[in-house]
Amino acid sequence: MIKKLFAKYFELTFWVAAIIALAVTNPAAETHFSLCPLKIAGIGWCPGCGLGHSISWLLRGNISNSFNAHWFGIPALGIILWRVFTLTRARLSNSNSFV
């Protein structure tokens, strides 16, 4: 039963938690924990660096800083929100059973 719940709700929970985490994170802070494997390895440049800051700025309504942090932040947030919407709709259409 736990495996079914995990399989059914993990992705939806992950994306909602990620959006909440980016909404409460201060993008203007000097330092923060990074999950970037290239940054952890000591490589200074990464094509995805700034994407989290961009989404965080966008959630605060600052489009200019969002675009300056990473140009793909705006479309990425749209894609993530669309995925949350489709996952929620799929789970609600099957709401006659919890598992």
Rank of each mutant, 00 (worst) to 15 (best):
N96K: 11
E30R: 08
L5S: 11
C49V: 01
N65Y: 09
M1E: 14
A69E: 05
L35G: 13
L35V: 10
W45Q: 11
I55E: 05
P75A: 05
W71D: 15
A28Q: 13
I80N: 04
I2Q: 14
R83K: 10
G73D: 06
H32T: 09
I74Y: 08
E30V: 07
L12Y: 14
S54K: 01
N62Y: 08
W57D: 04
F33V: 13
G42P: 01
A28L: 14
P27R: 00
L59N: 01
T31W: 14
I20V: 15
S97A: 11
L38N: 10
K39C: 08
A21W: 13
F33S: 09
L87W: 02
L12R: 01
N96S: 06
S95V: 03
T88M: 06
S34N: 01
H70V: 02
S97C: 05
V24S: 07
T31K: 12
L87G: 01
N94D: 10
F6P: 00
L38T: 02
V84D: 02
W82R: 07
A69K: 00
L5R: 08
H70F: 08
A17Q: 11
Y9T: 07
S66V: 03
V24W: 13
S93R: 06
I74V: 07
I80S: 09
C36S: 15
A18Q: 13
S34F: 00
A29I: 02
K8M: 13
N68H: 14
I79F: 15
L92H: 04
L81M: 12
V24P: 02
L58D: 06
S97W: 04
N65Q: 12
W57V: 00
V24H: 05
P75H: 07
A29H: 10
I55C: 01
A17L: 15
P47Y: 11
V84T: 04
G48C: 11
L58T: 01
K4D: 14
N68E: 15
G44T: 14
L12C: 02
A21N: 13
W71G: 07
A29K: 05
L35M: 08
I55T: 00
I63H: 05
G50V: 03
G73H: 06
L59Y: 09
H53Q: 12
A69F: 04
V24D: 06
I19H: 06
L22V: 01
A23R: 02
T13W: 14
S34V: 04
A23Y: 12
R91K: 10
I2V: 11
I80A: 12
L92A: 06
F10E: 07
I2L: 14
A76Q: 05
A41M: 10
W15D: 08
G50E: 04
P75M: 05
S95A: 12
G42W: 09
A18I: 05
I74Q: 01
R89V: 03
A7Q: 15
E11A: 13
F33T: 07
F98C: 03
A41K: 06
L58A: 04
G61S: 02
F6V: 15
L77K: 00
G78E: 04
S64P: 01
R89N: 14
N68V: 12
L81Y: 11
F33L: 06
N62H: 11
C36F: 09
